[in-house]
């Protein structure tokens, strides 16, 4: 477990977070007392297998999951419940499934212009054109529907949509796990470049240790809704991990051993 958090200069401070869903009448505790903090401009990773609660933590930050205990602070301040427009300007998210996160009947143009309308931006036309250019999509895609795009292109649209309101924090929920390996490399490079250009703080969730190692300076390993251990990136490379579970994950990520 990581030590007590110094919430003073943290961009995001999550302390003792619990999330409880009710399934039927049974309460299901998806996240059990997880704490971590993310520094400004840092890229922070959450790793775990299915059921570890890693995505739920991300959704709790956005107000999409029922928080039953603990608190989440951004720049030291608690957030409005429910999340307001000001929150949307600062924190955005990219979802795992590029096929499910774009409205099937909205053209790319509509997808990108809607946030601009919500937040009353004036130079919408220019911003849409620029947003497409920033994520490396040709302007010809602008009036297409999502089903006319490949998975990688859709995920670029989802990234463009998240960044078009110029947030400070980008939450990434397995952004490449539905993509082919070669497309994954392109999307990861794109995210790295945009992070530098726009001074973003990342929180990235993945089941793939190698992806997290590539993208994040620090990470938290999760299992069954609990934090297993917090690590620096260098610890992964040196296999300097303390828990058996992390070691298992490390071995597994190297492939099959006969």
């Amino acid at each position: 477990m990581s030590g007590p958090q110094s919430a003073g200069n943290a961009k995001i401070a999550v302390s003792d977070l619990s999330v409880t869903f009710t399934q039927g009448r049974r309460p299901v505790r998806a996240v059990k007392g997880v704490s971590f903090s993310v520094k400004p401009l840092e890229s922070f990773g959450l790793v775990g297998e299915s059921g570890s609660g890693k995505s739920t933590v991300l959704r709790a930050i956005c107000g999409l999951a029922p928080v039953s205990g603990g608190e989440i602070r951004i720049d030291g301040a608690a957030m409005a419940e429910p999340r307001d427009k000001a929150f949307a300007r600062r924190v955005q998210m990219v979802f795992q499934d590029p096929y499910g996160s774009l409205h099937p009947r909205h053209t790319i143009d509509r997808v990108l212009s809607e946030p601009l309308a919500i937040h009353r931006f004036s130079d919408r036309e220019d911003r849409i054109v620029q947003a497409l250019k920033d994520v490396g999509l040709d302007a010809r895609f602008r009036f297409r529907l999502p089903h006319q795009l490949s998975g990688g292109q859709r995920q670029r649209v989802a990234i463009a949509r998240a960044l078009i309101v110029e947030p400070e924090i980008l939450l990434l929920d397995e952004p490449t796990s539905a993509l082919d390996a070669s497309i994954q490399a392109e999307v990861l490079n794109l995210l790295t470049r945009l992070r530098e250009e726009r001074n973003l703080t990342f929180v990235m969730v993945s089941h793939d240790l190698a992806v997290i190692d590539h993208m994040c300076e620090r990470l938290l390993v999760m299992r069954g809704g609990e934090a297993v251990e917090a690590l620096e990136r260098s610890a992964l490379a040196d296999h300097a991990v303390s828990s058996d579970y992390t070691r298992t994950l490390l071995t597994a990520s190297e492939g099959y051993v006969r």
Binding site: R193, A210, D213, H214, A237
Partner: peptide
């Protein structure tokens, strides 16, 4: 070769990944 090289690796360099 491209498929092999575009995969991130633990302890690898943190330069941009090679793109196929």
């Amino acid at each position: 070769r491209g498929l092999l090289e575009c995969l991130p690796a633990i302890g690898g360099s943190h330069e941009p990944l090679k793109v196929l």
